[in-house]
Simulated scan of single mutants.
Amino acid sequence: MKILHTADWHVGKVLKNQPRIDEQRAVLRDLVRVANDEDVDIVIVAGDLFETAAPTPQAQGLVMQTLMALRSEGRHVVVLAGNHDNSRLVQDVYRPVLGELGMHVVGTPQRPDRGGTATFTTRTGEQAVVAALPFLSHRHAVRAAEVLLHNPSQHNQDYANRVRAIVDTLCAGFTSDTVNLVTTHATLLGGRWGGGERAVQTLLGYEVPPDTFPVSTHYAALGHLHRYQEIGGPCPIAYSGAPIALDFGEEDNTSVALIVHVTPDTRAAIRAVPLTGGRRLATLRGTLDEVVAAGEEAGDAFLRVILTQKASAGLADLVREKLPHTLDVQIDEKFRARAQAGAVRSRIGRSPTDLFADFLSEKEIDDPRLGAMFAELLDESTGSR
């Protein structure tokens, strides 16, 4: 049995006011090509289809077209909601619509008999059992545990234990003569960040240990961390990573889809297949003359330029004139003018999380948990989760 594992498409992502939809269209077209060339039996999309909880019609159209193309040739398609997705949109709109086309979509945690676990028979007659758990925020973990476990959840039970109990319930139908798969959107202990993930969901006890997955699992297909990586555990576990570099912290990531070959009697073999279509991101550091010289070798890469010289009028415009693909110009910290004591920084164009970080700095409070808590509360209050 062949499985294509992908995740973290983040369709609709804009980088420094630069739309990425054309790149996303190209790389998702290449993803469909890989599915066809490899003649896979099952496609798993492990969360974060969209960049925001309110995706544009253009973003939704691209995701729908891609999922339908992946479904062609009789392939089974499993789709999860991630932390960037609107879980109710995925569950209440995408699930019934795409379900009519034969896809298995899970937006919110479900009991095994309600869609949390699905059994597929491939074109060659092989059987797979897939346990699917979308992203769980802390505030939804208690309710999910109550729904799936049929008993009141202990409020002092930590997040990792709730996730483990839910996964155990979803995997109860695994047998020795089926290919047993788990897919979820979560942070595993030992995983390496890709650089663009939402920090609040990688702090505050959101991590779960690799032994969350039972030994009867043939393969655990994960989403959330944007760097392709395999993680040691009781079964083969991997993040596919994002199909394009989403931020400059991800410029060294490799864009791939994972092809997993497995049978009921063999350990999963994982192979990374490169994806094309995304533009390279690159950071150039140096004086104006140095970065301009380096930029000549950067091709069509989008650039972040960090200048190691003092700021001057029109400097950023000069960089963009000489390097048209520049999206961000900064002055190295060592060359920035120091703010005078008591100076008031402008709030224009700055996010609430940035302003809260300023407040903590002014109060000389150095605790990253507070910033993460503020970000989570902001997410909840604005309805992005």
Rank of each mutant, 00 (worst) to 15 (best):
V200W: 01
L377N: 12
V11A: 03
A372P: 03
A160R: 08
Q201R: 01
L225Y: 02
P152D: 06
V78S: 01
G314H: 04
T187Y: 13
L204A: 15
L246P: 01
D41Q: 07
E380W: 05
V45P: 00
P112W: 01
T308Q: 10
K310Q: 10
G299E: 15
Q58E: 13
A7W: 00
G349V: 08
T52L: 01
A357C: 06
A301R: 04
L377D: 10
L222Q: 13
R164C: 02
Q309S: 14
T263E: 14
S216A: 14
A269D: 08
R192T: 15
Q60R: 10
V40H: 02
G74L: 05
K363V: 04
N36D: 15
S384I: 06
H325V: 09
D332A: 15
T124M: 10
G191N: 02
I331H: 03
G349A: 01
G371N: 05
L288S: 10
D85E: 14
D22S: 11
D354F: 01
A337G: 09
A268S: 08
A268M: 02
G74T: 05
V200C: 03
N161E: 15
V291W: 07
L378W: 07
L98I: 02
H138M: 09
D41W: 03
A242S: 15
A221W: 08
R162H: 13
G47R: 03
F335Q: 12
G195F: 05
G107P: 07
D85C: 12
D39T: 12
N36R: 11
E364I: 02
A313D: 11
T308D: 15
L204T: 11
K322F: 00
R279L: 08
F356G: 03
G383A: 05
L307Y: 01
F248D: 06
E250S: 14
T122P: 09
L188S: 08
Y206Q: 07
R267E: 13
T56F: 14
R29N: 11
G99H: 07
T263R: 15
F135M: 09
T178L: 03
V208A: 11
A245R: 04
G241F: 04
R320Q: 10
A272E: 10
A311Q: 12
P209W: 07
A372D: 03
T263L: 07
A316C: 08
R20K: 09
A26N: 12
R285A: 10
N83G: 00
T66Y: 01
G102T: 10
L327A: 06
D85H: 11
S255P: 13
N161H: 13
A341D: 15
E296C: 08
A144R: 10
L315R: 00
Q65H: 14
L288Y: 11
N156G: 12
A313K: 06
P19S: 15
A69I: 13
G194H: 04
G232I: 01
L284I: 09
V260C: 00
Y206E: 06
A199D: 01
S176P: 06
D289A: 08
A118Q: 14
P112E: 02
G115Y: 03
Q24W: 05
L28I: 13
V262L: 01
